[in-house]
Design a binder for these strands. Structure first.
Length: 926
RNA sequence: GCGGAUGUGGCGUAAUUGGCAGCCGCGCCAGACUUAGGAUCUGGUGCCGUGAGGCGUGGGGGUUCGAGUCCCUUCAUCCGCACCA
């Protein structure tokens, strides 16, 4: 009988569960190793074959490390707050908690079937109050902290207040020498909000009316929401934000110390967008005001021919003269009404308007016109730029469009046609630039900054593209922000009471998510939490009604796994001192500027507070590729119920329609199944080619709506979990994206059966205790060596081929020696744990193979005494000749020349040169 | 526009890091066996050519005795960022 994978896999999954085989302790004499997967959001669609790809790789690595004698932490959990469950709740009235629970159970079932070695006792769910209690606790620490630029660390806000009191830090302009304690509570609160790491402020947000919430920058793609693709507009709102910008420099610099893919690091560098330059103030002619600009090119100061303000700039109205008022106001209004999307869509379209005013050039005193243009972004730098058309592409285009003069101040070291392009390179010598003349750009930048600073009109400055992260979401299914609003004594002037935000007391955590009647905003546009009845802090104070964003819970979950049940603290000192941080983190590259940046931010913050020892969450990060789906299409003719085969569709007017890939085999449609697939297909007619209906196909994202989802459950049911694991690895390098194709799976399936047959004759184990032969030992140890190399280089696809080679060789050798087969079972165990356990058990072991010892490669079995040299002429291999490895280069050279074959290829000529590379090649140059 | 990645048979891929290109599979071809199965086994399979042989790692050029691998250049595809001064 054949290997019964269904029985065996069920048996061992049961065994692991009962024996808690993968339970991990926080103390051990073994070295620690932490392998983490990005936890999933449990969606209603369940897992498809793409999801487990990374989990399989990490599981192999975790199991390998256990065999290598490490104490391995390999947990799993769920990122269970989020939009889809809430959208579903809005549609059906079903509480998101119930949906979430159902989805998690389904995920768990699917995961269990694949045989992962997770320690489920450490499971976390971000929507669980025991978990989000600590997410809220961390929020409170952020609220109570400020970033001290001198120590470059977050500190308790009390330290800042002390410094306000003793005057070592001034708490604001225009308040004179007033002492801190004389300020009202409201004034103090407002000032502190400018420093707190979690703070409330009026911010331009990405507001999505359809979703009824604000979105973070990385949740907006091309002006529409990432989820759902709804339009997003800019809106000024009072919002909770995280001062991630305080950490910009550290987030950038510390990238050098971590082993992450270059693409992720580069994406983060771009996102942080550090740019060094200088601020510079221009005096507005006949005015008390100045315009401050930021530039990275102070060297081009003598090339300035205009100054441009963003339409939102506060000085626009000030500098606009009466005769230009109408035009400017019109322009500003149009610009503001254009959505972010529209602005981005036509970047090429140059628009702007002259204000009628001028600034004075700081060095020449010349009059420089002030323009307004929406190519200048209000949110970056100072919202104003000094325009140098000859040396900046955008200024060049603007100047050309409006016929503004251009001044050349850098002599390019190459031929340059200034009629076509500006010269933006930081290379060349300065000309027409007074004290900068003759300097190289690099030196000119330094000199210009020095002169600007000396004149007191600006100073060297670093700008970041990174924005503070908006933290509040006007949604229901998220962590309540643990903030309440305290009413202060009524002020006489307004008759209204001042209100200040305060964090709830730590002992009152968790602040539970209240029940609401509907998951929609209120009639007045308040978030759903405003519907909660009698929901007040201490029965008196209104709570904050927005909830945390999806990334809050995932910004520290790697810590909670270390100590998942602690109800005294978010993670105990002992646990975090032992586990430190993640050694290997596997997940998708789509989180490059979202999760992966926030988790680094929170890690650094918690480290600043001395709560955790690590400054980075993960030492090594691997991004698994995406598994795409292959969609199948049928072609419906017009509005009929007739479908035409792919090859003949050109003759008709057709509409391509997605068809369930499960009723298509090798592009051939099962027409009967199609007719039964949906009621409206019952009477479908087909125009066939060669008696078959051929479907079209396309590679797309795997998704329910495209009918191209392949479920791991089906693969496990048909071929087994070990087969799925091996096949997913066999597909190709982990990092590569590829479309799923089940066709090749039979090769892996055959391999598993072949492996089984190596140990069995009929139904019986047939393993001999006689010593192994040299070729058998060689086959084994060669494989051990390769597998170690492969795993440590995360080259899981080549390991699978190497196992196949090994089993093929041993089958050829008719090897059934315990001395060979027992180590073979161990090295294959991380990949195919079920069959490995079964074989191990049949070999007479009573314990799990999980904690066996990974065999060592003994080089002595690999030593060869001779080598079959390829002999080539002018680099072209012509024949082979075996020589003993003890032979010297000279000996081989002599030997080769005596060969009849050599003489044949020499055709009577004398070789110019003979190259002999030991153990590699012989090359004869003629 | 900037940045990152990828490009090898009909397909997925491999190549000890400069040394026999195509390992391991899928598919395909031929054969064996047969209780005719989508089973198992054996052999073959880069392309052109009956053959000797020639050509072959997106294209072009270079370094080298020797290049998929190194250098220059160019093209294509995918991903990220994108008026960031």
């Amino acid at each position: 009988m054949e290997y019964d994978f269904r029985a065996v896999e069920k048996k061992w999954q049961q065994y692991w569960k009962e024996h808690k085989t993968f339970k991990t302790e926080n103390t051990s004499s073994k070295p620690k190793y932490y392998v983490l997967d990005m936890f999933p959001y449990p969606s209603g669609a369940g897992l498809h074959v793409g999801h487990p790809l990374g989990y399989i790789a990490s599981d192999i690595f975790a199991r390998y490390k256990r065999l290598k004698g490490f104490n391995v932490l390999h947990p799993m959990g769920y990122d269970s707050f989020g939009l889809p469950a809430e959208q579903y709740a809005i549609q059906t009235g079903q509480h998101p908690e119930i949906t979430t629970k159902t989805n998690i159970e389904r995920y768990r079932e699917q995961l269990d079937k694949i045989g992962f070695s997770f320690d489920w006792d450490r499971e976390v769910r971000t929507s669980n109050p025991n978990y989000y209690k600590w997410t809220q606790w961390i929020f409170i620490q952020l609220f109570n902290s400020w970033y001290n630029p001198e120590t470059n660390k977050a500190e308790n806000i009390e330290r800042l207040i002390e410094r306000f009191r003793n005057g070592s830090i001034s708490f604001g302009e225009g308040r004179g020498e007033a002492s801190w304690d004389l300020l009202s509570e409201k004034e103090q609160s407002d000032i502190l909000l400018n420093y707190r790491l979690a703070f409330l402020s009026d911010t331009m947000v990405n507001w999505c009316p359809q979703l009824g919430t604000v979105l973070a920058n990385e949740e907006v793609k091309d002006g529409v929401s990432e989820r759902g693709g709804y339009p997003v507009e800019r809106k000024l709102m009072k919002q909770w934000s995280m001062r991630i910008t305080a950490y910009a420099d550290r987030l950038l610099n510390d990238l050098d110390g971590i082993d992450w893919t270059e693409s992720i690091k580069e994406a983060q560098r771009n996102w942080i967008g550090k740019s060094e330059g200088t601020s510079l103030k221009f005096q507005i002619s006949n005015s008390k005001f100045q315009i401050e600009v930021f530039t990275t090119r102070p060297d081009t100061i003598f090339g300035v021919s205009f100054v441009t303000l963003a339409p939102e700039h506060e000085l626009v109205s000030v500098v606009t003269t009466a005769e230009n008022k109408k035009a400017v106001e019109e322009y500003v209004t149009t610009s503001k009404n254009r959505s972010e999307r529209e602005r981005q869509a036509d970047v090429k379209k140059i628009t702007g308007v002259f204000t009628g005013s001028y600034v004075e050039h700081p060095f020449t005193g010349k009059q420089i016109p002030i323009w307004v243009g929406d190519y200048v972004l209000a949110g970056y730098g100072t919202g104003a730029v000094m325009a140098v058309p000859m040396h900046d592409t955008r200024d060049f285009a603007f100047a050309n469009h409006f016929g503004i003069p251009k001044h050349m101040v850098i002599q390019p070291p190459v031929d340059w046609d200034f009629a076509i392009n500006s010269y933006d390179e930081k290379l060349g010598k300065l000309i027409n630039s007074d004290f900068l003349n003759g300097l190289e750009v690099k030196d000119a930048i330094k000199k210009a900054i020095a002169m600007i600073e000396e004149k007191g009109i600006g100073k060297g400055k670093t700008n970041f593209r990174l924005r503070d992260a908006i933290f509040g979401r006007q949604r229901y299914w998220g962590e309540p922000i643990p903030v309440y609003y305290k009413h202060l004594s009524t002020t006489l002037s307004t008759g209204e009471g001042d209100v200040i935000p305060c964090v709830v007391d730590e002992k009152d955590l968790p602040l539970l998510l209240p029940e609401v009647d509907k998951y929609l905003p209120t009639e007045t546009g308040e978030p759903p939490l405003a519907r909660a009845k009698d929901w007040k802090y201490k029965g008196r104070y209104e709570y904050e009604c927005s909830t945390m964003p999806g990334w809050a819970g995932s910004s520290w979950y790697f810590l909670r796994y270390m100590d998942a049940h602690n109800d005294k603290t978010f993670v105990s000192k002992e646990a975090v001192d032992y586990w430190q941080n993640v050694d290997l983190y596997i997940g998708g590259a789509e989180h490059a500027t979202g999760h992966l940046l926030y988790v680094r931010f929170w890690t650094k913050f918690l480290n600043d507070l001395g709560l955790i020892p690590a400054i980075e969450p993960a030492k090594k990060l691997i991004n698994q590729g995406m598994i795409q789906g292959v969609s199948s299409f049928v072609y419906r003719i017009g509005n009929t119920n007739q479908y035409v085969s792919h090859g003949l569709r050109k003759d008709y007017e057709t509409t391509p329609l997605h068809v369930d890939v499960n009723i298509v085999n090798n592009n051939v449609l099962d027409t009967e199944a199609f007719m039964n697939w949906r009621a409206e297909n019952k009477s479908a007619e087909f125009i066939l080619e060669n008696g078959k209906y051929i479907c079209g196909s396309e590679v797309e994202k795997m998704s329910k709506s495209k009918w191209n989802v392949v479920s791991p459950d089906d693969i496990v049911q048909q071929h087994g979990a070990d087969c799925l694991r091996l096949y997913e690895m066999f597909l190709g390098p982990l990092e590569l994206s590829k479309p799923w194709n089940t066709n090749g799976i039979s090769g892996v399936s055959n391999f598993i059966r072949k492996l089984w047959r190596l140990f069995h004759v009929g139904d019986n184990l047939n393993v001999s205790d006689t010593p192994a032969t040299k070729p058998e030992l060689k086959a084994l140890h060669k494989t051990i060596k390769k597998i170690i190399f492969d795993i440590e280089n995360f080259s899981f696809n080549t390991s699978v081929s190497n196992f196949m080679i090994c089993v093929n060789e041993l089958t050829e050798l008719k090897c059934n020696k315990r001395e060979i087969l027992e180590p073979l079972a161990i090295i294959i165990a991380p990949y195919a744990p079920h069959i490995a356990e079964e074989l191990w058990n049949q070999l007479g072991h009573t314990d799990s193979i999980t904690y066996a010892t990974f065999p060592e490669c003994k080089e002595e079995y690999l030593i060869e005494s001779s080598f079959n040299y390829p002999v080539s002429f002018n680099g072209k291999t012509r024949f082979f000749q075996e020589y003993d490895l003890s032979l010297s280069k000279e000996d081989i050279e002599k030997e080769v020349l005596t060969l009849e074959q050599t003489q044949k290829y020499l055709e009577g000529k004398t070789p110019k040169k003979i190259i002999v590379v030991h153990n590699k090649i012989v090359n004869i140059v003629v």
